[in-house]
Amino acid sequence: MLQVRGLTVRYRPEGRAEVAAVNQVDFSIASGEAVGLLGESGCGKTTLALSLLRLLPATACEVRGSIFFGKTELLGLGESELRRLRGAKISMIFQEPEISLNPVMRVGEQIAEVIRAHHPKGRQQCLDEVRALLDQLGFSDAHRIFNAYPHQLSGGQRQRAVIAQAIVCKPSLVIADEPTTALDPTVQSEILALFNDLKARFQTAFLFISHSPAILAKVVDRILVMYAGRIVEEAETTQILRHPLHPYTVGLLRCVFELGDEGAFRPRRVLPSIPGNPPGPTDLIHGCPFEPRCPERMEDCTAREPREVKLEDSRGVRCFKYGG
């Protein structure tokens, strides 16, 4: 349903040189599929998400490649066609529900606004649809939420309202950018459960963005690992968690909290971590971008960038260990 080929996004920050935030990215999402995008902050996840909706800031000076949504090439659409697409066919849940809602409009009205933006329905009809949706979303007091302003809601309720906005027009793809990071731990698991519920009920495809493999493990079927603007590994969730290939993926997975054997907790005095920092947007990269932090680096690594190697079961990886 969504096919991205050779997508490259370059930024030109004021007074500085051009940098590529997303570099030659290929991937696709089938309808109804839940795909995860994993990576540290600053690796281009959010830029990739925004470019799918063509919501990039004005400093993004170059967008190349192709994004096919069904038979439509998104990069060729005009502003008014994009407006009709956003929210109706592809919608987005942004980071931080605290500030994604209009502070001076009632929550119910805000959700209804999304319907009105795409369907020529009367105000009352829109509001009724919103009420029905809120009931479905497991709000214990849907009526109060409907009439509340965002500041009167808790973090979890706000995130539910944001989710309601994203799905109210039954889009075929929902992009969720770190949808649970700002939430308290117990609320986080409730929201993840809600996503699983929606997946089953609406048959919507999801693109989940997160820095946490453990969160993705709970909701997605397939994981794309992103590093320095490139997708470095791609596989089914179970495969990637059991048997990660790229040293970066291995490093990310080792950082996840584990209770240890038989659920018994044992304190670890030295935590496994990935040394160093991801390259900044202005850093020059020679060869494989992960090379400076890689525990398994070889001679080839600085010479050139590894190519993507396709393996069995639609797995892919960019690393010299597997041919590259």
Binding site: L53, L55, R83, R84, L85, R86, G87, A88, S91, M92, F94, E96, I99, S100, L101, N102, P103, E113, V114, A117, H118, V162, Q165, A166
Partner: peptide, 14 residues
């Protein structure tokens, strides 16, 4: 601000 970006992201007319 982010809520304007999300309103545009939902296709609310300009």
């Amino acid at each position: 601000s982010p809520f304007i970006r999300s309103a545009r992201g939902h296709g609310i007319p300009e």
